[in-house]
Design a protein around this nucleic acid. Sequence first.
DNA 1: AAGTGGTCTAGACCACCGA
DNA 2: CGGTGGTCTAGACCACTTG
Lengths: 236, 236
Amino acid sequence: MDRPPVSSPGEAPLYQRVKDHVAGLIGRGQLGPGDRVPSEHELVALFRVSRMTANRALRELTAEGWLFRIPGLGSFVAPQRAPATILEIPDPVADAIARGGRHQLETLLAGPARAPASIAAIFGLTAGTALFRGRWRHRVDGRPLLVEDRWILPALAPDAPQATPSVLVPHEQLDHSLRASLPPPDIAGALSLESGSACLLMTRTARLGGRTCTFSEFWLPGDRITLTGTSRSAAQ
Amino acid sequence: MDRPPVSSPGEAPLYQRVKDHVAGLIGRGQLGPGDRVPSEHELVALFRVSRMTANRALRELTAEGWLFRIPGLGSFVAPQRAPATILEIPDPVADAIARGGRHQLETLLAGPARAPASIAAIFGLTAGTALFRGRWRHRVDGRPLLVEDRWILPALAPDAPQATPSVLVPHEQLDHSLRASLPPPDIAGALSLESGSACLLMTRTARLGGRTCTFSEFWLPGDRITLTGTSRSAAQ
DNA sequence: AAGTGGTCTAGACCACCGA
DNA sequence: CGGTGGTCTAGACCACTTG
């Protein structure tokens, strides 16, 4: 070969240059969803690289969601990912703790309770069924940041009374929802909020074996908590 | 070689078996965060595979967040990813449209405007710089669901005045934040809300070439919008 | 010096697809 | 049949780390 045995220093690796080339075809709009991208063999000829290198480039672009591949047919531009339709939101308490904040937990309520109709419906039970209920307040660096109100199905979490909150009960799936709401007076008081302050209300339903095993409401003061996330997307 | 030239039919590829082995060491707790995993050379000897196969296994596990690697030192178990800390939030408008809702868009404001200090700071400019500003109201099935207030850097988006909102300006990165807030009177009016109603306030900063090119505020009525997401996690 | 990962090659066999 | 991707090998050179 008349080419250096490996990539020249200071330059991007060969597989990265191949990736950039194909990503550029897509990013500049020269290839759109469903269009065929150059085959491994064509990239081998174009870049004078081995097939393993071309394969790695297309394989990684596939893993990153740019392409899909059909053996025997070719590699194609993947359907447009709707940009920014997905926000990744870190758990605020775990986040605060990870940043080194001092975390305190106070139990406001803990014990058996009869489920009101609205809660019973979530568990698929009839109103009045006995559940375990707990309410905890989390402080980070002394400030109340979160009130957690949790209902637990005793049958699926026999040791629930001893369970600490935010240590999740075993689960297979978590469903979340998030909305803005004005807190009821007891929540506002627990968070040291003036009445009329907006809160984020996050709910979390944990499922195990197809059944709801815990339902939690998280109240977060709207002016003290900001959820953030970052996503990347090609210029379009 | 006394081994079949390629993986036997019906069995997982060799690189996958190596991945499974290493992931199993982590998943069963035999190796914890910071622990060293077998080197490529050790996996070559253990599985009788080529180094490229062992390399692919460890490289993919690294891309998937299981490991981190230090050239010259070894491969190590990555710090524990806190389970269920990531919440995926769909874009509410795109979501409503995807569900088949009838979408209407009204322009409440559009034209050049001087940036107040708070906005200028986001763009890294001085207060009073001329930006393009637009405000739009989105209705889904006739109900106001979103007021979008957008500031655009004209230099990076020359055709911004013609741009429709929610059609993103080209960008490389989006930063989002989400919090609860009480809307100012003009926003409350545009959403047909009583004063004192809680709203979700989402902000989106789009960056291109390392510079902020658009900044948007999205006001969503807290009682009409619920953001939802699902995540799966192993029982722990 | 010995071990690590990072990259690359020039072949190979296979299954699958469409003409 | 030829083209596609999926996998695999047995080497190689390099930069980097630790002793």
